[in-house]
Design a protein around this nucleic acid. Structure first.
Length: 893
RNA sequence: GGGAUCUUAGCUCAGCUGGUUCAGAGCACUUGGUUUACACCCAAGGGGUCAUAGGUUCGAAUCCUAUAGGUCCCACCA
């Protein structure tokens, strides 16, 4: 039988994924016999494609869920997708535009039909891609934030929050995207770090009934016609005499008050600020303080309207008007200065157009009250964030939480269930269905003749996060009619087996940039509807960057195609590659070399398996010469497993992988297998073979979460397994107590081996040439225990203990004793002397630093006895070593 | 402007409550190797005043203060 020396992941991976699926290993259901363990996936955008961030995220989740499954928990990983209203709508609009269809030519229903078609076509892609990665999601539970149930849940929650008084409709300064014609949340507005160049104009405003002028500075002259005041800092000696007078707006000569407000900076521009409440957040707030008139001169599409009073400007885009008005102001000599200025102007994340601050009627959630428990939960460690530094960030944000604008002027999403029936702003009702709305409207208006035709539903949809904040609850179909107590506004316990069993989930793995968008909001919803947190732990991954520290993105073109990567390196290789460089919470500098390292690791494991697989067993062969190796590896395995568990408990995935990596590569392959390996062609004894198989099985178990495919393949090849015996559902090993002394003995032995190999290296001695070793030591037992291993690993013909120092030897001194290797060839005495001198010098320096400490009375008196003891031991060890080196040196000279 | 956080080997990072895990790991690098499991490999080796300056202490990579530089979040000057 021959097995390839190269591990080929491609066929193996598809085979096992299919096998796991067919046997339903990913599916979980409430099981009172077992402890639940659940994770909900951060739902990717429904029309998105897998990128490196997803790869990292989902690898981590899969590792956790696989380990939990092996630990005998009922492990449930719920997958799903997010309808992502803005992103998806933008894509659909673009797609339609390419077909020559304008959104504005379509009815809402027609548009949604296209959107759903788009969703059906592309919606599943990303989940299929996750399967290639090995994600062991419970696919039967796949959720979509616009599923019928889910849609209803979101509406139900809106109505409930409205009835509880958390939702209100209000006039607010919002970020308006003139191109997409929608409001944007602050988070969707991008400010370029370096700012953008712009020109700051100084413009003269005449003072009424006077020849004086006031000079204001503005970046946005096109908003001049919306000015309703000029503000001056009352402390400003230069201008404060003007406060109380009136200024005249250029061209239209509107009289506006000159007011005092300390918002105005003394040393920016001219010190006088034109106040345009309709078009600037700060100006709006100044306006509120001084009860200023609001003149809104800009339309939703960014053109100016007739309120600007200048016909030449009406209907033209704000940027065009800027050019025109500068021309006009220039002609009349009103511009006194133009200077270059850099401003951190906001642009829409989606359309990249300059965001227009705009007053608009929007729906809001009052955040202060509703977020209180969510704030406390993190501060009091009811929910743990990894890494913990995000706790501070979270705190800062929650303390200063602002009301959440949840309406979006889009069609793709849950439509706001508010129905208008009259002329006045207050003439609306909020209800889950049009029928309920009609009843409410009849009550509210006192007009029992109202019909559904008199009701107009709000055209806007809800912010995506206002649906995905229910994800950890609603994936379990929580808000059904009989499960929700509308009176209390709570979900009823005991009505939903899945929810009762799996909620709260164990961990959420997501990106730090959506800590507030999504994580905080889920916590809020969790406490509001379940009186319970949605997850115990939050693991925040870093951003995947390239070697130049740039964020990997499609637009930069610096992101490899994940599926291509998987093809080339295998899913196992890519998974480990991602993890090799991924400390929790830090950005990951992705380097394709790491995937290569992952692939090499897979190959290494494969070959170790091949070696063992090909051994012939001889039942009659004695095994005692391997006792040391067997017992040592047993101890070493448990030591590593203990470490691994510790890493897992702190979500240090990268360290966990490295622990397994070193255990397999260094300890198992480089030392253990080499120690027990029979000479070529010879069989191995039964006892050693059996235990090696046992080791290999346990190694595959702890490898499985990281490299599920390779480990399952080897597992199944070691022995024929029944379905129930598949590795994916096998039992995770318990860390046992281990013999630390034995591990120390082994490292002493390995140190000896390394030194002998070193001697070979520096004397050009072939590893095939057997050497002799003579040892002068006071602790013979330690070496004796490991002597057969040392002989084998160092290729010694002979290992003897001596009482006198032999001549003509290569020589080294270790803590454990003095070692002599007679060699036949010429010994380079000069270089030996050189080396000895160096080593001696180092040890003398070491000793003197210790002596300094020990001679310091304050150290001896104050330091704990144990520490002093250690120093004394160091001293005597160093003295012994120095003595040996000196004697040796004397002999050579 | 407010806040957080970081600076340890060429690179990416570990180093928890100050003392044997104290100067570490992986990769990269150098040297040598056709040792029948693996050249996707083996063996050995060289790399660091722990950002800088002070302080606390018997003792500091670890605690404190300041400085410099980086990263992130929030707010934002018209």
């Amino acid at each position: 039988m021959s097995i390839s020396t190269k591990y080929d992941p491609i066929e193996v991976e598809d085979k096992w994924y299919q096998y796991w699926l067919e046997n339903n290993f990913f599916h979980a259901r409430p099981n009172p016999e077992k402890e639940p363990y659940s994770i909900v996936i951060p739902p990717p955008n429904v029309t998105g494609e897998l990128h490196m961030g997803h790869m990292l995220n989902n690898t981590i989740q899969d590792i956790l869920i696989r380990k939990a499954r092996m630990e005998g928990k009922e492990a449930c990983w719920v997958p799903g997708t997010d309808h992502a209203s803005i992103a998806t709508e933008a894509k659909v609009v673009r797609m339609l535009r390419e077909k020559g269809i304008k959104k504005s030519d379509l009815s809402r229903e027609e548009f949604l039909k296209y959107a759903w078609e788009w969703k059906e076509k592309y919606g599943g892609i990303i989940l299929e891609q996750l399967k290639k990665l090995g994600a062991s999601c419970d696919w039967e539970r796949t959720a979509f934030t616009m599923d019928d149930d889910y849609y209803k849940a979101v509406i139900r929650v809106f109505v409930d929050l409205f009835n509880k008084g958390y939702i209100y409709r209000g006039l607010r300064m919002i970020n308006w995207d003139c191109e997409a014609q929608t409001a944007l949340s602050n988070e969707e507005v991008i400010h370029d770090e370096n700012g953008e160049k712009s020109i700051l104009y100084s413009v003269k405003y005449k003072i009424k009934d006077s020849d004086e002028y006031v000079i204001i500075a503005t970046l946005r002259p096109e908003t001049i016609m919306g000015d309703t005041a000029v503000a001056i800092n009352p402390k400003d000696e230069r201008h404060n005499h003007l406060i109380g007078k009136k200024a005249l707006v250029p061209f239209i000569n509107r009289e506006i008050p000159i007011i005092g407000d300390d918002y105005v900076e003394l040393d920016f521009g001219s010190g006088c600020l034109k106040v345009t409440p309709a078009h600037d957040q700060n100006d709006y707030e100044i306006g509120l303080r001084h009860s200023l008139e609001v003149v809104d001169t800009i339309n939703l599409d960014g053109t100016l309207n007739e309120k600007c009073e200048i016909p030449r400007y009406v209907g033209k885009d704000r940027f065009e008007v800027r050019k025109l008005i500068i021309e006009d102001l220039g002609k009349t000599g009103l511009i006194v200065k133009e200077e270059e200025s850099v401003t951190k102007i906001g642009r829409s994340e989606r359309t990249n157009t300059v965001v227009e601050p705009k007053l608009s009627l929007q729906w809001f959630i009052k955040m202060k009250e509703i977020s209180r428990k969510a704030h406390a939960a993190v501060m009091e460690d009811e929910i743990l964030l990894y890494p913990t530094k995000f706790k501070n960030t979270y705190n800062h944000w929650m303390k200063n939480v602002r009301d959440w604008c949840i309406s979006r002027q889009l069609w793709w999403g849950q439509r706001i269930p508010a129905y208008y029936f009259g002329k006045v702003e207050e003439d609306f009702v909020v209800a889950e269905t049009p029928e309920d709305a009609l009843n409410l409207a009849r009550d509210k208006s006192g007009n029992s003749n109202l019909t559904t035709d008199d009701l107009q539903q709000d055209p806007d949809v809800l912010d995506t996060w206002a649906s995905s904040w229910l994800f950890p609850i609603e994936v379990f179909h929580a808000f059904g009619d009989d499960k929700f107590d509308a009176q209390k506004g709570k979900l009823i316990k005991g009505k939903n087996a899945d929810l009762d069993y799996f909620y709260p989930t164990d961990i959420l793995v997501t990106a730090p940039e959506i800590l507030f968008f999504w994580v905080a909001k889920m916590i809020i919803a969790g406490y509001e509807y379940m009186d319970e947190k949605p997850f115990r732990n939050v693991y925040l991954t870093g951003i995947v960057r390239d070697k130049l520290h740039r964020k990997m993105s499609k637009s930069l073109g610096n992101s490899p195609d994940p599926l291509e990567l998987i093809k080339e390196y295998g899913a196992d290789g890519v998974r480990t590659g991602m993890l090799f460089s991924s400390p929790a919470g830090n950005d990951l500098l992705f380097d394709i070399k790491l995937c290569e390292q992952g692939r090499k690791f897979a190959n290494k494991i494969w070959n170790a398996f091949r070696l063992v697989k090909n051994w012939k067993v001889d039942e009659n062969r004695p095994s005692d010469q391997n006792d040391f190796a067997l017992n040592w590896f047993e101890a070493r395995f448990n030591q590593a497993l203990t470490r691994l568990e510790d890493h897992f408990s702190k979500f240090r995935m990268s360290d966990g992988l490295m622990t397994v990596y070193k255990l397999i590569w260094d300890d198992y392959c480089a030392w253990y297998l080499e120690m027990i390996k029979p000479p070529f062609g010879e069989p191995i004894d039964k006892a050693t073979y059996d235990r090696t198989i046992d080791f290999q099985e346990r190694l595959m178990k702890i490898l499985h979460p990281f490299m599920p495919f390779l480990s399952e393949e080897i597992w199944q090849q070691i022995t024929n397994r029944t379905t129930e015996q598949a590795l994916i559902v096998s039992e995770w090993p318990e860390p046992k107590a281990f013999d630390k002394l034995l591990i120390d003995t082994a490292s002493t032995a390995f140190e000896v081996v390394t030194n002998i190999r070193n001697i070979r290296n520096s004397n050009n001695l072939s590893p095939k040439e057997a050497l002799e070793l003579q040892i002068l030591t006071s602790s013979k037992e330690v070496i004796e225990k490991a002597s057969s291993a040392i002989q084998k690993m160092a290729n010694l013909s002979n290992l003897t203990f001596v009482t006198d120092k032999p001549d003509n030897c290569m020589h080294f001194v270790l803590q454990s004793g003095e070692y002599f290797v007679p060699i036949t060839g010429e010994i380079d005495v000069e270089s030996q002397i050189e080396d000895l001198k160096k080593e001696l010098e180092y040890n003398m320096g070491f000793l003197s630093s210790i002596m300094k400490k020990l001679q310091n009375e304050r150290f001896v008196n104050n330091a704990p006895g144990k520490v002093v003891e250690i120093e004394r031991k160091k001293q005597s060890d160093a003295e012994v070593k120095i003595k040996a080196l000196e004697e040796r040196l004397a002999k050579l000279i």
